[in-house]
């Protein structure tokens, strides 16, 4: 199985490289074609025309777009993402400081979405044909219809303001210091043995991650239920029942295992959307991640950050797809043999 997985990774990377180049080219060209001059925010209002032209030259914005792209790409290969216009600092440093927060948020949301989605799917399947199924169906439709940022505001109003139960801005309460080893707050709290900080950080992540998960979980529920409906009439299920295997065991050990594969594919797609969802959720929850920084960069027309962050998002999507592919091979023996 190890060589099969290595093969998948190799093939994926081969496909990913030209894809990343294409994405980077698209992002670069589109950002330069929008009718907004990045220098507008880079120079002070009282800058003279000469100042502006000097700055344009310094930033290389006077060169043809393709030439600018080649220079930018060359710098990328040396690990240089450029310097932020607004912050005046290297983009790679800024991304490095904010990306771990986003990864942690997406991971927690993905875990929540998986748990809610699988549990909900199983419950919906169990309730099939009953009034309860209709209620569950309507609930999942409602969950899906509300966009994640609206869930975000709604959860703040309910759990943050009305019941005053959960925090909803930032990552830690005032007075709690943030340990820094790897940049990942949850991991660093564990590594430094600060479990109080860990619980605080998790508490601050409840509302934003639930807001993100609520958009993803209903789809998982529905696909899992449909898949279970399909496999439940298969011969091997009938055989298992005839052998006297208890119904719960039939569903979990036999039906679920096969119904989960299409669900996994969907989860892969949905989890890439979680990254997109962080843009607004991070702003609403004042969460210091890449999404928050990206929104600010767009407001400031901070091209170096937008380019760098867009590339990171593309890499994240490709990475998640790769993980889904690997999981697929690990879970599906037929696929392993076919390869």
């Amino acid at each position: 199985m190890g060589s099969e997985i290595a093969g998948i990774i190799g093939r994926r990377i081969l496909v990913a490289l030209p894809l990343i180049l294409l994405v980077s080219l698209l992002v670069f060209v589109v950002l330069r074609l929008i009718p907004s001059d990045p220098l507008a925010m880079a120079v002070p209002p009282n800058a003279t025309k000469a100042d502006i032209e000097a700055m344009r030259k310094e930033m290389g914005l006077d060169l043809p777009i393709l030439e600018q792209y080649v220079i930018w790409l060359g710098q990328l290969f040396q690990g240089n993402f450029g310097r932020s216009i607004a912050f005046g600092q290297p983009v790679i440093k800024l991304i490095g400081q904010s990306l771990p927060a986003t990864i942690e948020l997406v991971l927690i949301s993905a875990i929540l979405a998986t748990v809610i989605g699988i549990a909900g799917g199983m419950i919906m399947f169990r309730l099939r044909g009953s009034f309860g199924e209709q209620v569950a169906d309507a609930s999942s439709t409602l969950m899906m219809s509300v966009p994640d940022f609206l869930w975000g505001l709604f959860l703040i109003l309910i759990f943050g303001v009305a019941f005053n139960l959960l925090p909803f801005s930032g990552r830690l309460p005032p007075g709690v210091a943030q340990p820094n080893v790897t940049g990942f707050l949850l991991l660093d709290s564990i590594l430094t043995g600060r479990f109080g900080t860990l619980f605080s950080a998790l508490e601050f992540m409840i509302l934003p991650s639930v807001a993100l998960a609520l958009g993803t979980a209903p789809l998982v529920m529905r696909v899992l239920r449909s898949s279970l409906m399909e496999v439940i009439n298969e011969d091997y299920i009938t055989m298992a029942r005839m052998r006297g295997v208890p119904e719960r065991r039939v569903i979990i050990r036999h039906a679920f295992k096969n119904a989960f594969l299409p669900t996994l594919t969907l989860m892969g797609v949905q989890f890439t959307f979680l990254f997109g969802g962080t843009l607004l959720i991070e702003v609403i929850y004042s969460y210091p991640g890449l999404g928050n920084m990206m929104v600010e960069a767009v407001r400031n027309t901070d091209l170096p950050i937008i380019q760098g962050a867009a590339l990171i998002y593309a890499l994240a999507v490709l990475g998640i797809n790769l993980l889904v592919d690997i999981s697929y091979v690990m879970l599906n023996p037929k696929l392993r043999r076919a390869r």
């Binding site: 909803f168 801005s169 004042s286």
Partner: peptide
């Protein structure tokens, strides 16, 4: 002084109303 950066006006309202700031 602890300054929480809360860019969204609705979230600022919620924060002060809930007594968190």
């Amino acid at each position: 002084i602890t300054i929480q950066i809360i860019k969204d006006p609705s979230a600022r309202v919620a924060a002060v109303q809930s007594g968190r700031v």
